[in-house]
């Protein structure tokens, strides 16, 4: 398959994983991500990998934990309520320094919420689980990126031996869009699993994988080591989209994921307003310094989200001038339209 093709976001995630060499997938049904386990149940065995339908999201993430212990590139996907159940396992993976890719196709909350698109798990992604850990979080904005970012997430996970999250939503999961698959692109496998995975102590000393460190000072040191790694990630893996050509702006719009694409439409449509888009692509690490620089030229910084204000907290930390920051968001599956965002922008600019 090459050339332009129409693909559903959820399927693009599955294809990106398969192409990246993911050979273990576990998932539990929850809308709006069901296409992924359905598709994987057929595609994964074809690719010579293991598909397992877990009996809960707790089991999903711990199956991924086990597959990762055994050295397989592994993934699970879910949506918001399921992601809450996975927090324990994600923390263990971070503590044990196990790679793995976790996809959250967000829906409305809290509680059972609804099945409409939402961005209400931003906090949970960038401030995950229990314990002092971080997780690289990539936020795709179109179906091409659903494929590309999932592909790249496996290399990032292996490179840093850390869980990586794809944070997307029901809109991107359910919509179809033309994309080009880069079949033949080779995953880098930057840190082969053979160096650390448990495969049996043949011709080497036994290995152990653990996150319990009871000796005085041992856990503190482990955390310092993790933070050294996180600092490296901050330096090397930061991603954002900011059109440098658009120097001439007095409004800066900050949005991620599906709201970022709507924001591009707002800028294209609102020719009367000089606006530019700053889109964080990695939500952790967050591009604080780059956003601060971009915000200097702006009279106003607008933050658009599908929640009641989560990323805006990081934007405020970056901008360091609360009087500049304006927020517009809709919770519970409300989809801000291009018109709606543009009229908010016009009202605030005037």
């Amino acid at each position: 398959m090459s050339g332009k093709m129409l693909m559903k976001g959820n399927i693009a995630i599955a294809e990106g994983a398969i192409d990246a060499g993911c050979r273990f997938y576990a998932g539990y049904p929850i809308t709006p991500q069901n296409e992924i386990p359905e598709y994987m149940s057929k595609r994964m065995p074809e690719a010579g990998g293991v598909f397992m339908q877990a009996e809960s999201e707790l089991i999903s993430i711990n199956l991924v934990f086990g597959a990762s212990v055994a050295g397989a590139r592994s993934m699970t996907t879910s949506s918001s309520p399921g992601m809450s159940l996975m927090q324990e396992g994600i923390s263990y993976m971070a503590g044990c320094e196990l790679p793995g890719v976790i996809v959250n196709v967000m829906r409305g909350g809290p509680g059972l919420g609804n099945i409409a698109p939402s961005q209400s798990d931003y906090f949970q992604a960038v401030k995950p689980g229990h314990g002092d850990f971080r997780m690289i979080t990539l936020a795709p904005s179109n179906i091409q990126e659903m494929y590309d970012f999932t592909f790249e997430a496996f290399d990032l996970a292996d490179k840093y031996r850390n869980p990586v999250m794809i944070l997307t939503d029901g809109l991107l999961g359910q919509m179809m869009e033309t994309i080009e698959l880069s079949r033949g692109r080779k995953p880098l496998n930057p840190r082969p699993a053979s160096e650390w995975a448990l495969t049996g102590a043949k011709g080497r000393e036994p290995r152990k994988i653990l996150s319990l460190l009871m000796k005085p000072g041992a856990l503190e040191q482990h955390n310092y080591d993790l933070w050294k790694k996180y600092d490296e990630i901050k330096k090397s893996e930061l991603r954002y989209e900011f059109n440098e050509k658009e120097k001439d702006y007095d409004c800066l719009i900050v949005a991620f994921g599906s709201v970022a694409r709507t924001s591009k439409g707002v800028i294209a449509e609102g020719k009367d307003i000089k606006a530019a888009l700053f889109r964080p692509v990695t939500l952790w690490p967050f591009p604080y310094a780059e956003l601060r620089e971009a915000a200097k030229k702006a009279k106003k910084v607008f933050v658009f989200e599908m929640n009641m204000g989560q990323m805006v907290e990081d934007v405020r930390l970056a901008v360091q001038d609360d009087s500049k920051v304006e927020f517009y968001g809709r919770p519970g599956g409300g989809l801000p339209s291009q018109e709606e965002l543009l009229s908010f922008l016009r009202k605030k600019v005037k």
Partner: peptide, 30 residues
């Protein structure tokens, strides 16, 4: 091109709706 369905509970029996955008340029909101 983009195709965006109304999905979930809505799709059973009742109302059915989708948005399609076709363009030579980048498509913003679907």
């Amino acid at each position: 091109a983009t195709w965006l369905p109304a999905y979930g509970a809505e799709k059973r029996g009742g109302f059915s709706h989708c948005s399609v955008i076709i363009s030579d340029e980048e498509i913003f909101s679907p």
